[in-house]
């Protein structure tokens, strides 16, 4: 691992750990991540017994060379964006650990676990109430949105 920057070293370490011990229903596209450590695709299965059972999703993680001090940019991509009160139809996710509450002690794995639990605790499949407005006006990068976090229960 000589010659790697601290952020690359850390990402390499995280990639290995996610490969070896992925959380249930989560898998990372290793080939893609090894080509470019700063952009990963993670596959996620809806948990059995929840509203998302049988569905599968794709998450895109983008990192900067300031990772883990800078939070990763995480969005749902592909043709199945989960219908959820905190997920906009463009794939942006309203989750505080992705911006304000990010800590360098968190990891790709802990973000995946939070998203799995966010989906699993959902009681009604619907889009956020301001979806149409947000999707029309937001920046491409969800980290450029000043989020208001109001409801932790879903």
């Amino acid at each position: 691992m000589a010659g790697m920057s601290p952020s690359e070293r850390r990402l390499q370490k995280e990639l290995m750990s996610l490969m070896k011990e992925p959380p249930p229903g989560v898998s990372v596209d290793v080939d893609l991540a090894e080509q470019n450590l700063l952009q990963w695709i993670v596959h996620m299965e809806g948990v059995t017994g929840t509203l998302y059972e049988g569905e599968s999703f794709q998450l895109q993680f983008k990192f900067t060379n300031k990772y883990p001090f800078d939070s990763p940019e995480v969005t749902f991509i592909g043709n199945n964006i989960p219908v959820h009160p905190h997920v906009y139809s463009n794939g942006h996710i309203c989750l505080s650990i992705l911006t304000d509450d990010w800590s360098p002690a968190l990891s790709v794995q802990s973000v995946c676990l939070s998203i799995v639990s966010m989906l699993s605790s959902c009681k009604e499949k619907k889009r956020p109430s301001d979806n149409a407005f947000y999707v029309k006006t937001c920046s491409k990068n969800p980290k450029k949105t000043k989020w208001w976090y109001h409801d932790d229960s879903v």
Binding site: R10, K13, P104, A105, L106, S107, Q109
Partner: peptide, 10 residues
């Protein structure tokens, strides 16, 4: 309950 994995680096 802190993740060993990230705590270690710091």
């Amino acid at each position: 309950g802190f993740p060993q994995f990230t705590v270690e680096d710091f």
